[in-house]
Amino acid sequence: MKTLHIIPKEVLSIGLFILGLAMLTPTLSLAANAAEQRGLDIASEADQRDFGFGDYRVHLEMTLRNKHQQQTSRSMRNTTREQADDGEKTLIIFDNPRDVKGTAFLSHTHKAGADDQWLFLPALKRVKRISSSNKAGPFMGSEFAYEDISSQEVEKYTYNFRGEESFDARNHFVVERFPTNAKSGYHKQVVWYDQAEYRIWKIDFYDRRDELFKTLTYSDYNQYLNKYWRANQMDMINHKTGKSTTLTFSAYQFAIGTTDMDFTASRLKRAR
């Protein structure tokens, strides 16, 4: 109790200042909360509109360009199955380049906690469980990081509504999202949703230092099962290196009748 009597003046004034701040914060955080809530609402609405597709299969062509515009390409097949109360399950089988033909990547995304991932190496017939903490690492040497291609769960970000913007004859919501996972390579992402269908048209990625790092644009949207929108093309540009990657999707098939048993680690060694 003795210490109370010897509080220096400076400490006291700082204490009062903090007290004053504390009284101000409720209004500030109310405003922040409103923007956060609006951002979360938009992300949730987009997620809700895409919910219920069940499963799909798609062919993917990946074109990698270096800053001299020299191209290399990869092709793969992706099968995805939705989970009612957890992240999606995804199986990717590689067809090209030929040395990785038959290599398969299985991922179980979780809304909370680390994802589960496995790799099947056909030459050895070996299934390896791998660490999923390599979020920021490049996928197949491309400008897409593992976290860019894995399923985008609402729970994996916090949000902030930034405003509205019109371009390409569409009105957009602009939402900032901040990854909750400390292993993410990003400080934040800025996402443009169209107001009519809640489709994503553009994402700006900011690195850990909050500098603009990459831009992803979506184009050539098609609607499947009269409800679910998928872009046929995604272009990622790395502003730091000048490299870019184009993903071209084709032959989308929905309602293909998968079961969870098609996405188990032991079934992975039968993947082709």
């Binding site: 680390a114 589960d116 469980r129 791998i130 660490s131 903490s133 292993k183």
Partner: peptide
């Protein structure tokens, strides 16, 4: 046995 933790198997 394999224990898969963050960066270590």
């Amino acid at each position: 046995l394999q224990l898969t933790t963050n960066n270590t198997l």
